[in-house]
């Protein structure tokens, strides 16, 4: 199971990096989202995917899944939510102010 998940996380990273290297701002934003999915899946996998009950104390249950990676992922998810929403607004404003959403044309040496 861990092997399959690692391959899936790797694929997410690969497609994410491919999208990051594109020219359109929106595709770059999608790339960052894919990379964070990959990273979160990776945390879950690295915590171990052995069977067990959900980590809620119930009488009569012996084996639980590891609760720590789930807490780490939850934290990481909300953080990347915050950053992604900021990125989307920033991309919108930047493309409006500069008149283009092509990252190649967002260069230049003029500083205000």
């Amino acid at each position: 199971m861990e092997i399959i998940m690692s391959i899936v996380a790797g694929l997410l990273f690969a497609t994410g990096v491919y999208n990051l290297l594109q020219k359109q701002l929106l595709r770059i934003a999608i790339g960052t989202a894919l990379i964070s999915h990959g990273a979160h899946l990776f945390i879950l996998t690295m915590g171990g995917l052995k069977g067990g009950a959900p980590p809620i104390l119930v009488e009569g249950v012996e084996h639980y899944t590891d609760p720590l990676p789930q807490a780490l992922i939850l934290t990481s998810i909300v953080i990347s939510f915050g950053v992604t929403s900021f990125l989307l607004v920033l991309a919108y404003r930047a493309s409006e102010a500069n008149g283009t959403d092509n990252i190649e044309q967002l260069r230049g040496n003029d500083y205000e």
Binding site: L20, T32, I35, S36, G38, A39, H40, F42, I43, M46, G47, G48, L68, P69, L72, S76, I79, S80, V83, L87
Partner: peptide
Amino acid sequence: NLFSSMLFVTAVSFVYS
């Protein structure tokens, strides 16, 4: 910074495993 933060999370999960 978003990219390197995601790598940081990945590295932390490596350490944890």
